[in-house]
């Protein structure tokens, strides 16, 4: 196993993680296509995954990686359900515009 990560290197990874997260978040807020919105959530998952692995490397253990397995699990489940929902909504009304579904509000 390689040398554990120094705090300086960790900062690099965390900065990258934060930037990716915010980009994903902005994408989620600005894009109106349901599929791209879900893609952006996947991007945020990626950002979280980088932070996990980097912290794991900093602490010199594999728990970060184990957590990533769980993240992958949730991401896969989320993708399956989200896409199923998209397909269902699209069948009901042939549009992927998130705003077109805003009458679901209470």
């Amino acid at each position: 196993m390689t040398e554990p990560l120094s705090i300086l290197a960790l900062n690099h990874y965390l900065l990258l993680s934060a930037v990716l997260f915010v980009i994903g978040f902005i994408g989620f807020l600005t894009r109106r296509n349901l599929i791209i919105m879900f893609l952006c959530t996947e991007l945020m998952f990626q950002a979280a995954a980088i932070a996990m692995i980097a912290f794991g490397a900093y602490h010199g253990n594999v728990q970060g990686q184990v957590f990533l397995i769980f993240i992958l699990t949730i991401a896969a489940a989320e993708a399956a359900l989200a896409l199923a929902l998209v397909v269902m909504l699209y069948r009901r009304r042939p549009t992927l515009d998130a705003e077109k579904w805003s009458e679901l509000k209470g």
């Binding site: 978040f25 989620f28 807020l29 998130a98 509000k105």
Partner: peptide, 11 residues
């Protein structure tokens, strides 16, 4: 505020 738009809530 409760406009039913997902992005609004995200914001």
């Amino acid at each position: 505020m409760q406009n039913g738009r997902l992005q609004g809530y995200g914001l």
